[in-house]
Amino acid sequence: MRRSALLAAVFCLVLLVPCLAEAGIVAKVNISSQRMSVYVDGMPRYIWLVSTARPGYRTPTGTFRPTAVVRYHASTIYSGSPMPFSIFFLRGYAIHGSYETRYLGRPASHGCIRLHPANAAVLYSLVKQYGAGNTLIEISY
């Protein structure tokens, strides 16, 4: 009896682990559509307009984890431009709020992923709540 109970417990854990692996935040950025889809615990929650790199610049593609989460950052490269709710994912590249909201939905940045400041605040809060280790950023065409 003890052995069958142990086997049943192990079997339940094996079934539960894939669900735990999906827990967290996934931000999927589609460069072609200039949209970001945000999933929370595997469920779609938000779709937002973004601006990625304009011609002559590039937004990196791939899958990343946040390397730094900063409430307010001023660009050290572009004349101190405000970057509220920054989520850095590769060297100086970040997802961040932008006050240039009229450009959302089309390429306009130097490579970062720009969001409306209100949407950036929501994403920032989710990443802080779930943790950078439980957040994935997927960028593709």
Rank of each mutant, 00 (worst) to 15 (best):
G42E: 06
F85Q: 02
R106M: 08
Y78W: 15
T59G: 07
C12L: 15
A9I: 01
L15C: 14
T59V: 08
R3V: 10
R58Q: 12
L20Q: 14
P18D: 12
S109C: 03
V70R: 15
H96L: 07
R54K: 15
I137H: 02
F64H: 11
F11W: 08
E138H: 11
Y39F: 15
T101D: 02
Y93G: 02
L16C: 09
R45P: 00
S33V: 01
V29M: 06
C19Y: 14
I95K: 02
W48R: 08
F64I: 05
A118H: 11
R2L: 09
Y46V: 07
L136I: 02
G62C: 13
T63D: 04
P84H: 15
I87F: 06
G111R: 00
G42D: 10
E22Y: 13
N30F: 00
I31T: 06
R2K: 08
A9Q: 07
P66L: 13
R114S: 04
E22C: 06
P55N: 12
A94Q: 04
R35T: 06
A132E: 12
K128W: 05
M1I: 03
E138S: 11
I113G: 00
N119I: 00
A118D: 10
V14C: 12
S140N: 11
A120I: 05
Y46I: 08
R102V: 09
L90F: 11
R71A: 15
T61L: 14
H116A: 13
M83P: 04
P44R: 14
V17N: 07
I31G: 02
M1F: 02
Y39I: 03
Y78S: 14
T63P: 03
F64E: 10
L16V: 08
I137G: 03
S37T: 10
Y93N: 03
Y103S: 07
L90H: 11
V69L: 15
P66H: 10
S37W: 04
S32Q: 02
V122C: 01
S4L: 08
L126G: 05
C12T: 09
S75D: 11
T67L: 13
A27C: 04
P55D: 15
A118G: 03
V50R: 05
F88I: 01
